[in-house]
């Protein structure tokens, strides 16, 4: 005789937001329950990614390296490069890799959802697992690239500072910011492919509004736009922390981080509520 719990699950048309206590409870439970699956998905995707390659993990570096070389060769004269406090190649290196990580974490939830659409529509597993898994993959890539960054930092003879230890945690916030935006877009991306199509051009423009390959100009319109850009404070913050051990823009870094956390919770709720509606639309 099977043991069945006395209390069953009940599905009704009522919005789950009407019982926020229970919603938060199940969200927490599902998050915990999704760890193992998330881990499996990370392992699956990473193995699958590299199994059919000859160069294997080199591919975690190669695109970034190429982009970097290109940036350095093409030290563009379009923007006036202000003095950077660290060697310019190192500046570009950090900028490019961190930006790539940001883009990856923004795309991760969208990719995870579209890729696992059929699984989503047919099996009831904790939906958080997909997102955790996707972010796990981003962190793996970041980890590999971080090795590269550490190597270059030592190569350029940057003096080690205690504050540098905090850089990985700051980088985590960059990932969270990207993931929050991606998680917000993901349900819409599943309904409308316009979202996926629009992202690459938007990200290109966004990159030029972020101090990736050149520092924030002292004044002017671009400078103001850059300061309003949430990616600026986080990305520049991580880079400053990692290369100098300090963070001049700490206050804006903290503001953006706090906002990201709060927004992430809201976006998570939207994500959860949207899944049943999405499944109905993508399979009906």
């Amino acid at each position: 005789m099977k043991q069945s719990s006395p209390e069953g699950v009940i599905y009704t048309p009522e919005s789950q937001l009407r019982s926020p206590g229970r919603l938060i409870g199940t969200m927490g439970r599902d998050l915990i329950a999704s760890r193992e699956l998330a881990w499996r998905l990370v392992v699956r995707d990473l193995r699958a990614r590299y199994r059919q390659t000859a160069f294997g993990f080199l591919w975690a570096f190669l695109p970034v390296l190429t982009a970097l070389v290109f940036q350095l060769l093409n030290q563009s004269q379009v923007f006036e490069v202000r003095d950077t406090r660290i060697p310019y190649p190192l500046f570009v290196m950090f900028g490019t890799i961190l930006w790539q990580t940001f883009v990856d974490s923004l795309n991760a939830p969208i990719r995870a959802l579209t890729k696992n659409k059929s699984m989503l529509a047919k099996v009831n597993f904790p939906r958080e697992a997909l997102i955790l898994g996707a972010v796990g993959e981003v962190l793996f890539d970041l980890g590999i690239r971080a090795v590269l960054l550490v190597g270059f930092t030592v190569w350029y003879g940057v003096e080690p500072q205690l504050g540098m230890v905090l850089a990985p945690f700051a980088a985590l916030l960059l990932v969270l910011l990207g993931m929050m935006i991606g998680l917000f877009l993901a349900p819409f991306a599943l309904l409308y492919e316009d979202v996926t199509l629009a992202l690459p051009p938007i990200m290109t423009v966004w990159m030029f509004l972020t101090p990736v390959v050149f520092p924030v100009p002292a004044s002017g319109l671009l400078s103001r736009v850059m300061h309003l850009n949430p990616a600026t404070s986080i990305l520049a913050g991580v880079r400053d922390l990692a290369t100098t051990g300090g963070m001049p823009g700490l206050s804006s870094f903290l503001v953006v981080s706090g906002t990201t956390f709060v927004a992430l919770m809201g976006v998570w709720v939207i994500y959860r509520l949207s899944i049943p509606i999405l499944i109905e639309r993508i399979t009906a």
């Binding site: 069945s4 006395p6 699950v9 599905y11 509606i277």
Partner: peptide
Amino acid sequence: MNGLIRPDTGSIMVRG
């Protein structure tokens, strides 16, 4: 019944 989509009216209870 699997909880993949939600009802428009009525309810479903599943135990276990």
